[in-house]
């Protein structure tokens, strides 16, 4: 649907104008701007629409916030930092921290009490953070509320601790396998030069499926629809894990590959953040690179058939 030209109707133009804004000066809504000046009927429609929009904007903010939300957020942040500060100990493993946080959640559950206070009830996001590196908790911060107790543990507690510590080591081991381990940084040009080109075409037949050693999202759902097969991986530094995910794509006679690289591995990441504003390079094939700051990845799009303009036209947000 996005690929076909669309001329906004008068009603659509009116609906696009925000209350108390300068939107009526925009070129796309000039028909509406004229209509509300020349027609009392459209002026009335516009005024009602603006009034409705103001009501809606107010209603959007009408959400009851859990009373203990801030406390739980502070606890989550403190726990996140504390876990990174904890060295593995049989008396204070991740399991205990999870349990403690879960108990805190249970205690603090007010209007929004959706989860049982068990370790597994923690959001995946927090568990993910618990497994990642972080910063130590500064003295006097809120997180001191969950500092390890110095009281001698009971036998049951000790056994639980041993089990928790074992689980922690297993999780840590899995985390080490799953999470990126850092490594040498490359320039974009080095990446380009290391690509296995054969007869002017990227030769992906010898590449293994991407090992998911880092999060390699596509830029948008549109790219997903163009994807031709599962991603394959490139091991640029020869350490056995993939440093780039390579997606083959095709769209209307344009065929190529989209490389996704961790931004931390690129020493000269592009400053542009959109495909359509990125600078074009022609070595070893027509390509553009851009950065997705929030995803912490760099995209490198190479064509072996077609023109970048074909993609640019459909990826540029503009009135068709």
């Amino acid at each position: 649907m996005d690929n076909s030209p669309h001329n906004p109707t008068l009603r659509e133009q009116l609906d696009a104008v925000r209350p108390d804004s300068d939107d009526l000066r925009e070129a796309e809504v000039q028909e509406a701007a004229r209509a509300i000046v020349t027609s009392d009927e459209w002026r009335a429609v516009f005024d009602r629409q603006q009034a409705f929009d103001r009501e809606m904007s107010n209603a959007m903010q009408d959400v009851e916030v859990p009373t203990d939300l801030q406390t739980r957020l502070h606890d989550a942040l403190a726990l996140n930092r504390e876990v990174a500060d904890q060295s593995p100990s049989p008396l204070e493993g991740e399991g205990q921290l999870l349990q403690r946080s879960a108990e805190k959640q249970g205690e603090g559950a007010g209007r929004v009490s959706h989860r049982e206070p068990t370790p597994t009830s923690l959001p995946l996001t927090l568990i993910s953070r618990l497994r990642s590196k972080s910063v130590p908790l500064p003295p006097g911060e809120r997180g001191t509320a969950v500092t390890p107790s110095l009281v001698r543990p009971s036998r049951r507690t000790w056994m639980r601790s041993v089990i928790a510590a074992t689980a922690m080591f297993v999780v840590a081991g899995l985390g080490w396998l799953i999470l990126p381990h850092g490594g040498a940084a490359f320039t974009l040009n080095e990446v380009r030069q290391s690509l296995p080109f054969k007869n002017g075409t990227l030769n992906t037949t010898s590449l293994a499926n991407f090992d998911s050693s880092f999060d390699a999202p596509l830029p948008s759902s549109r790219w997903t629809s163009w994807q031709q097969s599962d991603a394959v991986g490139l091991d640029l530094d020869g350490n056995g894990t993939h440093d780039a995910a390579v997606y083959e794509f095709a769209y209307r006679g344009t065929h190529g590959y989209l490389l996704v690289l961790p931004a931390s591995r690129i020493s000269d990441p592009p400053t542009r953040t959109f495909f359509n504003t990125a600078t074009i390079s022609y070595t070893p094939a027509t390509n553009v690179a851009w950065t997705a700051p929030t995803e912490e990845v760099v995209y490198l799009c190479l064509l072996d058939q077609g023109q970048l303009d074909t993609l640019s036209r459909v990826l540029t947000p503009a009135t068709a």
Binding site: D15, T319, A320
Partner: peptide, 20 residues
Amino acid sequence: YKDIATHLDIPTGTVMSRLS
């Protein structure tokens, strides 16, 4: 609507239609 188009990576005309 222009900012929405940029953030969602869709044409402004489509944003206007969907908004409406």
